[in-house]
Design a protein around this nucleic acid. Sequence first.
DNA 1: CGGCATACG
DNA 2: CGTA
DNA 3: GCCG
Length: 474
Amino acid sequence: MDATAGKELTAVEQMLCKAFPDVGPFGTSALEKALRKLEKFELACQGDDWADPECKATNTEALQYARARAVVKGLSWSLRESLQARGRTGTIERLMEEPFLGKSNATKIVEIFQTGTCQRTLARFERGEAPLDSEGNVRMWAHRHEHKATRPMTDGPAKVELSSVLCISAMTAIKLVHERNIRSIAQLRDRPEIVRELHGGHRLDHSLRFHEQLQEPVPAEDACEMLKTVRETVRALRVPRAAGWHAELVGGGRTRGRAGHDVDILLWHKEEMASFLSSQGPVFVLDILLGVLVEQGRVLPKGEAYFSRKCVASRHDDPRPYLRQIHMAQESSKGFENLQYDHHDKFFGIWRSARTGKLHRIDLVVCSHPEELPFARLAWTGTRTLNRLMRLRAIDLGLYLGAHCFVARGDREGTTETKVVVDAQAGRPPEVITLGKLEPLPFKYVQSEEDILRVLACGTNAFAKLVDPTNRNA
DNA sequence: CGGCATACG
DNA sequence: CGTA
DNA sequence: GCCG
């Protein structure tokens, strides 16, 4: 039985029922590119959503465009045929039946599909002008009343270009444009004294020098070589059960079947954690791996280029500090299996191809605990928009979804208990788990990405199209 | 009319 | 603040 | 801007 039978699906549920292929059958790639450009202009002009809990600002415009693009990717009908059969008005009405598309977004989608651009937003952004809102007024400022700071919506192309440089955020790009009158990467390169003020150090210098190379798509041959080298290197390390380490592509390499400008690799082991205790304290597999890759000349060292390593020592603490809150919230018994979660060790850096000598961005993620693998895979495969949709769905169910596990939020009125339907498929009695506040869902119920998607669908297979990672290009 | 994903150094 |  |  379908747990959602008889009820209208929410917008998020409708989205998660869809498939998002890299290239759809209805010729929407130009439209998708335009919506992506609009999202980038909004992010570059307003700044991305930021995690400051004091300021709960969301870049709603960027979010709208990201969702609209996902809807277009997931469309199961042809805009072109609909325009022929029903005309503009009929097609707009039909689009408005899709999740997250209201009148504004539906109209914009049709205009972009028919003309290749949108006069009130995209065409203005591309000329460096501020866009118009749905009432025709100029949106001169990002509307963030909490921050008195002025953020003009002009100079979109300059801000997009500058913020595409590794180590230069949207906020830094905004300052460069309006405080230093820098309008391109070329202009920034001519002003070393301004680069120095940005406090990016040698990493920023290096990013600027090799920016074009770092933006190029990684050739398939090099992406394969990166994966193979990482896999063989980790298996040759002097760490416990080294031969059991696996390396697999996540990110675009998994959803599209080819790398973009970076290569994302997830490392995992069936039995071992990402680190182990020695007499000197915790030893991180990632650190040893990076040591070898740097020595071999494949990964550029810390002192030379962008190099960001994030490992956590608390994995081996007893009791683990990140569990204290859960212990305090719920003193009662928990199984061993749900006592283990912290963050995955990560590396964001630069790879040098042995074949061409060219530089490429590489991300390595080491799954911290074996049982967290499906969560790490799901989160690091993405896309960003799909992660946000899945996490919104988790919120609807009273859960947190991160890269490690499900945790009951326990913030609903009336009760701190959260009921999770882990299985409600035909021919079986429904299986419901009750969790206390901040209690993780035991890993035995979520041993694969498919299991996670099933929990999100209240025990049904309603979201099963997303099990195939090539359908996750939302 | 509040909320918009989540996480780390 | 910058990154995923 | 769209949703619940």
